[in-house]
């Protein structure tokens, strides 16, 4: 309740509580509003992820993520999920530094707040950098765009008839669900031929279009959240530095609120990571 008394003597019109005798939720209105905003934002993401799931359920085949996300900077290939695991670590680490910033705020340690927020911003920017690299590779090297998805997966067992130097030799066997990448040469797709179990000769086909579109759309929307988070963090860090939050005498509540947002971005990533990279 000490918090409450502080609010009542806050001279800022916008941040003061128009409250009666008590705050039933023992939280300031600002924090509550942030929680409810995050709840509604969670439903926005839920809308996207449910749409993703629905389209995935409606596709006969879906590329295997271990195959799609297997490149690392420095021209390293076929190391499945390593890069995205690093990205996840970066985001988790930035969440951890954010918790530290909030804790320092509770002790009115201005230097601590600014230091840990700065680390958080670095973490956010690194994550965005990783994402930029990932997108560049997917679009530039593998030609996956929102219109085309070269990652297909077999719907039947069979054997390759020809190899083209991309690690596939003639005679290689594959099973239902195995992924392949349709390469592009001189602006044309160059699919491989194969023989299925029934003996018919077939050609690899591009994967479901929705895969690329959904990937770029949803990770992009998440990345946009990270980007706006970084911008807000930057503003709030500068404000904290200037000392205006210390004057408000409310345990750096602004830092706490942006902290909630930042953890939420991390939370969303848990599910984006789950549905795009793991399942």
């Amino acid at each position: 309740m000490a918090d409450h008394a502080i609010h009542n003597h806050d001279s800022h019109d916008n941040s003061r509580l128009w409250d009666g005798a008590k705050e039933p939720f023992k939280a300031s209105y600002g924090k509550l509003m942030m929680w409810y905003f995050l709840l509604s934002d969670a439903f926005t993401f839920a809308g996207f992820l449910i749409a993703y799931g629905t389209l995935r359920f409606s596709s006969p085949a879906w590329p295997v993520p271990d195959f799609v996300f297997s490149s690392l900077p420095g021209d390293i290939h076929h190391k499945p999920l390593i890069f995205v695991t690093i990205m996840t670590f970066v985001l988790i680490a930035s969440s951890v530094t954010m918790v530290r910033a909030v804790q320092e705020g509770h002790r009115y340690n201005k230097k601590g707040v600014v230091f840990w927020m700065f680390l958080t911003i670095i973490g956010g920017l690194s994550f965005l950098g990783c994402q930029a690299w990932e997108w560049t590779t997917l679009i530039g090297k593998e030609h996956m765009t929102i219109h085309n998805n070269p990652f297909g997966s077999h719907t039947e067992n069979g054997v390759y008839l020809e190899g083209d130097g991309h690690d596939i030799k003639a005679g290689d066997q594959f099973k239902v669900g195995d992924s392949y990448l349709v390469h592009k040469h001189d602006g044309h797709w160059a699919p491989l031929s194969y023989k299925n179990e029934a003996g018919a000769t077939k050609t690899q086909q591009l994967g479901p279009k929705a895969f690329g579109a959904l990937f770029f759309f949803i990770t992009g929307f998440h990345g946009f959240h990270v980007f706006s988070g970084v911008v807000f963090l930057l503003i709030i860090m500068i404000n904290a530095w200037s000392g205006i939050y210390a004057k408000r005498n409310n345990k750096y509540e602004m830092v706490e609120k942006i902290g909630l947002y930042w953890h939420f971005v991390d939370l969303v990533w848990v599910f984006v990571f789950l549905v795009f990279y793991l399942l």
Binding site: Y36, S40, T44, H147, F217
Partner: peptide, 25 residues
């Protein structure tokens, strides 16, 4: 409103992509 309008917004965003960027959601 808080729980349902965001889902409409997601639907709209996908629609905007279909309209302007040529996706096929």
């Amino acid at each position: 409103a808080l729980l349902s309008f965001p889902v409409l917004a997601s639907g709209f965003f996908l629609l905007i992509f279909d309209r302007s960027l040529g996706t096929s959601f």
